[in-house]
Design a protein around this nucleic acid. Structure first.
Length: 187
DNA sequence: TAGGCCATCTGGTCCT
DNA sequence: AGGACCAGATGGCCTA
């Protein structure tokens, strides 16, 4: 995996949505390309693209009275800003997650996919640790052990987070440990 | 230079 | 109706 330790980039937001859209193909993004089929698009995406194709090339506000056009441009700019804010919040959440996941070589920033994958396996390893520690309790005594174990069994039976096809609990810690090294040491 | 990662724009859909 | 959510497209930056 490549290293990523660059400062956050800030792209200049397009001032004119019309101009920004002008570089795109008039019919919208990659209609019916093989790439889309290969990716297995959701029905929602297929509907969206169909609508774009049927609707022709005109985008809302592209014609008509100037006031309406300006309105639509203004709404687009506001929408863009909201989307930016939403993505910033999402990135903040990613950063918060990075900060609570132990990983080697902390000078390198984890990518989003690395963060999610490590987080998933970290949770699994913690779960297995808790289960291991609680399994020493005598059955029938009060405490988290039996309930935790029952919960684990239910999850496994339902094919949940710790599904039946997953390794045994003690395997999660080993896998997590292996993974944090493989992520950071050149795989 | 290719490939990975990312930010941003965009328009359709969902939700309140 | 308006905002949130989502995913495709695009282009920039960086590293190997």
């Amino acid at each position: 995996m490549k290293t990523k330790n660059r400062p956050p980039r800030r792209r200049v937001p397009a001032q004119d949505p019309e101009a920004a859209a002008g570089e795109r193909t008039p019919d919208g993004p990659q209609q019916g390309s093989g790439l889309e089929l290969a990716k297995g698009l959701r029905s929602r995406t297929v509907r969206a693209q169909g609508a774009r194709a049927e609707g022709g090339h005109r985008r809302p506000g592209a014609s008509g009275p100037g006031g309406r056009r300006e309105n639509s441009v203004q709404r687009r700019l506001e929408s863009n800003e909201r989307e930016r804010q939403r993505m910033h919040k999402l990135n903040n959440a990613f950063q918060a997650l990075r900060e609570v996941i132990p990983h080697v070589r902390a000078d390198k920033k984890l990518s989003k996919i690395e963060t999610l994958t490590l987080a998933k396996n970290y949770i699994k390893s913690l779960t297995s640790t808790i289960l291991t520690m609680s399994s020493g309790r005598l059955p029938g005594l009060d405490g988290p052990g039996p309930k935790l174990y029952q919960h684990y069994q239910q999850q496994a039976a339902a094919g949940g987070a710790l599904g039946a096809t997953e390794p045994q609990p003690e395997g999660h810690l080993q896998r997590y440990s292996t993974q944090i090294h493989s992520f950071r040491e050149g795989s």
